[in-house]
């Protein structure tokens, strides 16, 4: 098979680490597990001009409910409004902002790197440094899985940039309050 050059939106752009203009907030929203709920939540954010940066939705331990973890940027006052308006939705059980709370926070990324035999060992070594798992290996590429907090993922991805990224999929952040308190 011939070598393919795959250009994706992730490929050519060197990772610029610029300071974000507005703080990133993480909202944890417990909702009824029903059709339409995500649309209602998304509308609250869109109406106020907030861009949702990451979104993780999965069933909660009580199957009637879903947990949404939403990362969004915006000024704190506006976010209070959004939080209050989300809380008002009938389908929302509760909604909390974990930006400054004492939480554990994790994210997972699958990183497809364009690397052939010549530099493979180098790439794997860097991967090892970040505790990556190798999920797939072909003559011209490999897929690494990395987990950790957002900063660690950013650092790993920026290192891989050097080899050439073919594709990148991040799950978005999930958080959970430490100790016995509920998220």
């Amino acid at each position: 098979m011939k070598n393919r050059t795959i250009v994706t939106t992730d490929t050519p752009v060197p990772m610029e680490i610029k300071p974000p203009e507005q703080p990133l907030h993480t909202l944890s929203v417990l909702v009824n597990n029903q059709p339409g709920v995500l649309a209602r939540i998304a509308q609250v954010f869109a109406r106020r001009g907030f861009n949702i940066e990451s979104l993780v939705v999965s069933p909660a331990n009580d199957g009637r409910f879903s947990r949404m973890t939403i990362g969004a940027r915006g000024d704190a006052e506006n976010l209070d409004q959004i939080k209050a308006q989300c809380g008002k939705l009938i389908d929302v059980i509760h909604c909390s902002d974990h930006t400054e709370d004492d939480v554990v926070s994790k994210e997972l990324a699958l990183v497809k790197v364009a690397v052939g035999p010549d530099r493979r060992a180098e790439a794997l070594q860097i991967g090892e440094h970040f505790g990556c798992k190798t999920l797939d290996l072909t003559p011209d590429s490999l897929i690494l899985m990395v987990t950790g907090d957002t900063g660690k993922l950013d650092a790993m991805i920026s290192m891989m940039q050097d080899f050439g990224l073919i594709e990148l999929v991040r799950t978005g952040k999930v958080v959970m309050t430490r100790g016995e308190g509920l998220t």
């Binding site: 059709p35 339409g36 649309a39 209602r40 509308q43 109406r47 009938i90 389908d91």
Partner: peptide, 14 residues
């Protein structure tokens, strides 16, 4: 209509 009216209802059902 469930989707269309979403921003102008207190709640809705299909």
């Amino acid at each position: 209509i469930f989707g269309i009216t979403m921003p102008v209802v207190k709640h809705s059902y299909l």
